[in-house]
Design a protein around this nucleic acid. Structure first.
Lengths: 202, 202
DNA sequence: ACATTTGTTAACCATCTGGTTAAACCTCTT
DNA sequence: AAGAGGTTTAACCAGATGGTTAACAAATGT
């Protein structure tokens, strides 16, 4: 039997759907069981409680994002290349997992100490190398002076917000679903240009 | 009796606290009643149902944000001034209402058609004048070419994201509460500079 | 073949939750 | 002082919800 067909994995899969679209509070154990096509008691057999099942889903979701961040933050390319790669890759990834950003941001907000459990985990993103690269390129006169933390948050903001605020963005800019998708698609390069424009010395 | 002391207003006030910190699904009518110091039946007497009480809270919250956006979008200053004013004002405002961004973004996400009810409402932000200003300044050679919608979303993203993703930002940049506040404080000018740097012709 | 462990189910349970009701309580007006 | 209208409360209710149990089935080991 393949791993994807085990009951335990089917539960996690269904739980992912339900938790990510409805949140911890809005999710119902019965709905997860129905979606997985199994008896509700199995949820408790494999994961003991709603809280633990939720944590399994959350850690899974987070571990999907973190490595992407790490790879790009820690490679040896220039800051400009890091930004261009990140912006393209991250946006592509988000388009495939539209619920992910909201789920993570929101559950993290509602349970602030939850992030401590993640920090211990291997693969929690580390900014040191990125910051060193930024400072180095500033000293060499390639980049204008900027605090590396501020730059990093700006990069995250510009890439993640359009997904977090999708309904708001659609309403304010008066775009339908198709136009919104095109808008996001063009951000893959637009955002990188916007950032590079701002920080590159010329 | 002052307006703030009426039962109806006390309910709305308590409901605001509970809904904004726990969301629609996590909020409990009993908790709202307790916080307001009144009997639970009064919630239904004045607002009929949880859904309607929630909508009252939500519209209230949204109507706090929308005018701010409008004022700045529709005044007659230059795009640079709009951006500088908005960035400073909005960040100050958010620091006083830290739950607001998450509440609005999240509930809007979970109930997409909900924004339609707001659109009819007077004071829903309109971008036309802002877009005209941007296009005008591009033609005059003051700004580099950029799609006004993209610029607008960038402005929102850079201003709102640090609040939405507070726990993530704190964890990734390894800041405690005090350092985070200083970080946000310095964004009041940093973000405007970052944007202007990127779009201004030189 | 038999016993032990592991997986699965239907039925059940205590508690919680949004919402209702009927009676009591003001606070005016006449 | 009595009636009328809105306001407030305690008690209640039906349905939902996370979780448990006991019996049963399917593997697994010996």
């Amino acid at each position: 039997m393949k791993k994807e067909e085990t009951t335990e994995h089917q539960i996690l899969d269904a739980a992912k759907d339900v938790f990510q679209s409805k949140g911890m509070d809005g999710a119902r154990m019965q709905e997860i069981a129905d979606k997985a096509g199994i008896n509700k008691a199995m949820l408790h057999y494999y994961y003991r409680s709603k809280q633990l099942l939720f944590e399994a889903v959350f850690k899974n979701a987070f571990s999907l994002l973190a490595p992407q961040l790490n790879t790009i933050l820690n490679d040896d390319s220039t800051v400009e290349d890091k930004i261009r790669n990140f912006t393209g890759d991250y946006t592509s990834f988000m388009m495939k997992h539209p619920y992910l950003p909201n789920f993570i941001i929101n559950e993290l907000y509602r349970n602030e100490d939850f992030i401590l459990k993640l920090k211990d985990n291997t693969g929690f993103p580390n900014l040191e190398k990125f910051k060193a690269s930024v400072d180095d390129e500033i000293n060499k006169g390639i980049l204008k002076p900027i605090d590396a933390d501020q730059l990093f948050v700006n990069i995250l903001a510009l890439n993640i917000f359009p997904f977090l605020g999708k309904p708001l963005v659609k309403a304010l800019t008066k775009k339908d679903e198709k136009e919104y998708k095109a808008f996001i698609e063009s951000r893959k390069t637009e955002v990188a240009n916007f950032i590079i424009n701002s920080i590159k010395q010329h």
